[in-house]
Design a protein around this nucleic acid. Structure first.
Lengths: 213, 213
DNA sequence: GTCTATAAAGCGATAGAC
DNA sequence: GTCTATCGCTTTATAGAC
């Protein structure tokens, strides 16, 4: 079923699917070969260091994908609630409502997970930083925003665990519905982000009536 | 290093350590044999159905252990906040601040995880039910209590994922510190649980001054 | 750059002696 | 109830032809 040749990018994407579906130890070279259409030996031409290198490449590709699809939008100019909802829509798709693991979960249950700890740490750090910024934009104090950003990431990872362990996507869907309200509880309703956005030189939003009235 | 013979209970406990440390696929018969002091073949005398049966026994033993150490105390007569803190103290120890996975996480990343889905589902259902009861005792409406019980379990699982993926126990410790306040936010302070407890025929607490004054 | 063939080790599981 | 020995298969990885 796989096509003749892949770009490097497409190749890593296929690797990611196998790791995320079967876990690190479950992602055998035979499975990866089947998913990519390459022979087992050919994989060592692209990844001379073998499976560990493949996982490292997948983690890096995931970071780049999240940068574009999640982190940058989280830092955007839309209202905070809208940015959060957009993130959760992207994540519901990425995680297939919890049925597909992310790479942090994959590395959390594998031998020599220390090999990947630093990559995952920086991934989480970037994610939490952008969520913290969003929540301060929404009017939350910085320390509260930081705590809730940690909470949010853990809730998402936890929901994936529950969904995969119980073969029931309910937990992820419920989490995605509730998370914006919970993270934004007590935030000044759009006041602070509006002020910040209004005077931001990077704003692409139409300017308010102040300029014309 | 392993001693000569184990009781069935001790044997399953050793199995649990191996599964929780190395994951399902990482828990090889060789590792299990080393951890129990038995030969690989001897393990099939105790568990004729092999590795899947071993994992099933560990899950069941975990359920029994949680019933005694977590679920029953959650249903106790102490103030709700005290019961929550007691649970988190037990869990911090059980999960070694996130460094050891629980069986749900182990089964979430393994081949044929469907084999264990029903066991894990009933485990979670019991846990969530007891937490829901505790939170209604604290004065929360039943639907809010149920949502927060789900949230709490996911936060705990998520914290374990983050800790293991980053090799840093900070996330679990922070979660354990914050969870009681977050779950009990907005609850009537001890009012409802006190009323329920005072008139409970099962109460072992000393009766209030009403009886003597 | 992909392939066939194969090495070397590990896997879960079984047979049968004691 | 534990053992040694082994089966049959899969694993990661390599060698070398094309």
């Amino acid at each position: 079923m796989p096509q003749a040749t892949f770009s490097r990018e497409q190749l890593v994407e296929r690797l990611a699917q196998v790791f995320r579906r079967h876990g690190y130890e479950g992602a055998s070279m035979t499975r990866i070969a089947a998913a990519t259409g390459l022979g087992r030996a050919s994989l060592y031409h692209h990844f001379p260091l073998g499976k560990e290198q493949m996982a490292e490449m997948v983690i890096e590709a995931t970071r780049i994908w999240f940068e574009e699809k999640v982190f940058v939008p989280l830092e955007g100019n839309q209202p905070p609630r809208q940015r959060l909802s957009a993130m959760l829509a992207v994540l519901s798709d990425y995680y297939d409502c919890g049925r597909m693991a992310g790479m942090p979960l994959v590395t959390a249950v594998c031998e020599d997970r220390d090999r990947f700890a630093e990559s995952i740490r920086s991934f989480y750090a970037r994610w939490i930083a952008t969520m913290t910024q969003l929540l301060t934009d929404a009017g939350l104090a910085r320390d509260i925003a930081a705590r809730r950003a940690h909470d949010g990431v853990e809730r998402i990872e936890g929901a994936v665990v529950v969904v995969r362990a119980t073969s029931n996507a309910y937990a992820f869907v419920r989490m995605a519905e509730e998370l914006p309200d919970q993270l934004l509880a007590g935030a000044d309703r759009a006041a602070v982000w509006t002020v910040r956005n209004r005077f931001s030189p990077l704003s692409r939003e139409p300017q308010p009536a102040r300029l014309t009235g």
